[in-house]
């Protein structure tokens, strides 16, 4: 097990190193930030001074090593535009995205798996057919449109829920969170629903397909032949047997939603990182872009690492394959 963890950890380090090169070169290739940082009427001297101050006169590999050296010391540079440390900038926005995404992905998974298992368990019932019909909507209706309709209906027409912003926040460990307050929670509901719909539909489909397949296997027939009740079969056999694909998708969705909740954050003016990165790309704020993309890579690598560990915990075959 320890060998497995070390092996996965080293893999993660390699992925991160490669990612940092790709990101750094990729971002370097687009545009010249210097034109945005200094006013057009600046003299040649000011211009050169700015280039030197930002380290843009050095060859690319030197810039990269300086960047990596700083990164390893926890310094991701300063934003060209806001002139504050990038880490501070992203750190201030990340909790907002984090709470929104966690709430939506977790509730989509819990609800989606329950509905999907039901639909797979009783495929002929009209409730199952309704669930599957609704899940098609979840897939096919564009998310921005759903967001607008949610605002129109629940915020404008009914006036039940606020249309945007984070609402009242509470400081925990020096970070502002919305979810502990009732007002904050009411602000989360609509964007979370908006984000969750697609994932809900996917989880329903995944759980249903898994359930239908597993319910036909001899494992289930044998359990039934032993007189084990249907509830126990669903809880102890089925949920374990369908968990691997669900966990995989859960991890991928968690990562990609954290990174790309942009549309929903924009519609509901949710001050998360998605909105920050769009603004930064618009003004070629290179340090923010690089730091953000590296952070995203880091999130993905971490999530996958954790999911691999969970696999090994729940599936003895993975565990054995990992140690041998």
């Amino acid at each position: 097990m320890l060998g497995f963890i070390i092996q996965r950890f080293l893999q993660a380090v390699v992925v991160m190193a490669v990612m940092s090169v790709i990101v750094f070169c990729g971002v370097y290739a687009i545009g010249n930030p210097i034109d945005i940082v200094i006013p057009p009427e600046a003299t040649q001297e000011i211009r050169e001074a700015a280039i030197r101050r930002l380290g843009l006169d050095l060859p690319l590999y030197k810039q990269y090593f300086i960047f990596m050296g700083n990164l390893l010391q926890g310094d991701l540079g300063r934003s060209f535009v806001y002139n504050v440390p990038v880490l501070e900038l992203i750190g201030g926005r990340l909790p907002a995205t984090l709470e929104l995404v966690l709430i939506s992905v977790i509730s989509a998974t819990v609800l989606g798996v329950s509905l999907g298992v039901y639909a797979g368990y009783r495929p002929e019932s009209w409730i199952s057919k309704t669930i599957m019909g609704v899940s098609v909507l979840g897939f096919s209706v564009p998310s921005f449109w759903v967001g607008l309709i949610l605002i129109l209906f629940f915020a404008v027409n009914l006036g039940w829920l606020p249309a945007g912003g984070r609402g009242e926040t509470v400081e925990i460990w020096g970070v502002a969170w919305s979810f502990p307050t009732l007002d904050g929670l009411s602000h989360i509901v609509l964007p979370a629903v908006n984000l969750a719909l697609f994932k809900l539909a996917m989880m329903i489909r995944l759980a249903r397909a898994g359930t239908r397949e597993i319910m036909l296997t001899d494992t289930i027939k044998f359990a039934r032949a032993a007189g084990i009740s249907e509830g126990t079969i669903l809880r102890r056999h089925l949920l374990k047997l369908i968990s691997i694909p669900i966990l995989t998708v859960f991890g991928l969705e968690l990562g990609s939603t954290l990174a790309f909740a942009v549309v929903t954050e924009t519609i509901f003016s949710w001050p998360g990182v998605g909105k920050l990165i769009i603004d930064s790309i618009g003004v070629l704020d290179r340090p923010v872009m690089v730091a953000y993309l590296i952070l995203v890579a880091f999130l993905f690598v971490t999530i996958n690492f954790v999911i691999d560990l969970v696999f090994a915990l729940i599936d003895p075959r993975v565990r054995q394959g990992a140690t041998s």
């Binding site: 044998f222 032949a225 007189g227 047997l241 599936d315």
Partner: peptide, 19 residues
């Protein structure tokens, strides 16, 4: 079932839950 009458199947790989 399992108490008064039980059943065993052809393929023991498929009948036991691997997890």
């Amino acid at each position: 079932r399992g108490h008064d009458i039980s059943m065993i199947f052809q393929d023991p790989i498929a009948t036991l839950n691997p997890m």
